[in-house]
Simulated assay, not measured.
Amino acid sequence: MFSEIEHRVTLVLADRSPGGVPVPAVLAYRRQDPFAIRLTFPGICGPDGPDLGDLTWLLSRELLEAGLTAPVGEGDVRVVPTTSTAIRLHLRSGAAEAVLEAPRPSVEHFLRACGTCVPPGEESTVYDWDHAWTDVLGRERS
């Protein structure tokens, strides 16, 4: 059984360019954090060119799965199915927003692999609740 899954995917930034702008990304899943999907954009460059490092968004696994069949999400992350071959990710941070198209078959393949790691609905049985509570309570004391 896998404890970590990474899947490289090319998203398309839906802007005014014909066909959009390809954006490489990595979808990642970790058994020890079974509710979350990490969407990482490696090696983001700043406006003057320096490498700012990776940019990572945390998405709900349940949100991404539900977004394959119906529009879901409020606030900073929304997922909308658009066609049989694509889904749209709306990511917002402050005043900035990006709309990215993801290849639906690739996302479905990734989510199936996540399901072999931790079956849907069984996330709470593998999550380390004791560690999470210790972490939360430790932060409150600081």
Rank of each mutant, 00 (worst) to 15 (best):
residue 34 P to D: 05
residue 91 L to R: 03
residue 107 V to M: 08
residue 47 P to Y: 02
residue 4 E to N: 03
residue 66 A to H: 01
residue 77 V to M: 06
residue 99 V to K: 09
residue 26 V to Y: 03
residue 28 A to L: 02
residue 125 T to G: 00
residue 82 T to K: 04
residue 125 T to W: 09
residue 93 S to N: 12
residue 8 R to S: 13
residue 33 D to V: 06
residue 50 P to W: 04
residue 50 P to E: 12
residue 124 S to L: 10
residue 14 A to T: 14
residue 15 D to H: 09
residue 136 V to P: 02
residue 102 A to P: 05
residue 25 A to G: 06
residue 77 V to E: 02
residue 117 C to V: 15
residue 129 W to Q: 13
residue 65 E to T: 03
residue 47 P to E: 14
residue 2 F to P: 12
residue 113 A to C: 07
residue 32 Q to S: 14
residue 97 E to A: 15
residue 97 E to R: 12
residue 43 G to H: 14
residue 5 I to V: 15
residue 87 I to K: 01
residue 104 R to T: 11
residue 27 L to K: 09
residue 64 L to E: 02
residue 7 H to D: 05
residue 123 E to G: 02
residue 36 A to C: 11
residue 90 H to L: 11
residue 23 V to Y: 03
residue 117 C to G: 08
residue 70 A to N: 12
residue 122 E to F: 12
residue 120 P to D: 10
residue 15 D to S: 15
residue 57 W to Y: 04
residue 95 A to N: 13
residue 9 V to S: 08
residue 25 A to H: 01
residue 31 R to D: 11
residue 135 D to R: 07
residue 31 R to I: 10
residue 133 W to K: 15
residue 24 P to G: 04
residue 1 M to A: 15
residue 104 R to F: 11
residue 50 P to M: 07
residue 111 L to F: 09
residue 104 R to H: 12
residue 120 P to T: 13
residue 90 H to R: 13
residue 139 R to Y: 02
residue 81 P to R: 00
residue 57 W to V: 04
residue 123 E to M: 10
residue 3 S to I: 12
residue 138 G to C: 10
residue 128 D to H: 11
residue 38 R to G: 03
residue 107 V to H: 01
residue 24 P to L: 07
residue 35 F to R: 02
residue 108 E to R: 11
residue 11 L to G: 04
residue 118 V to M: 10
residue 77 V to N: 02
residue 99 V to P: 04
residue 13 L to K: 09
residue 63 L to G: 07
residue 10 T to N: 08
residue 49 G to D: 12
residue 21 V to Q: 08
residue 14 A to H: 11
residue 30 R to V: 07
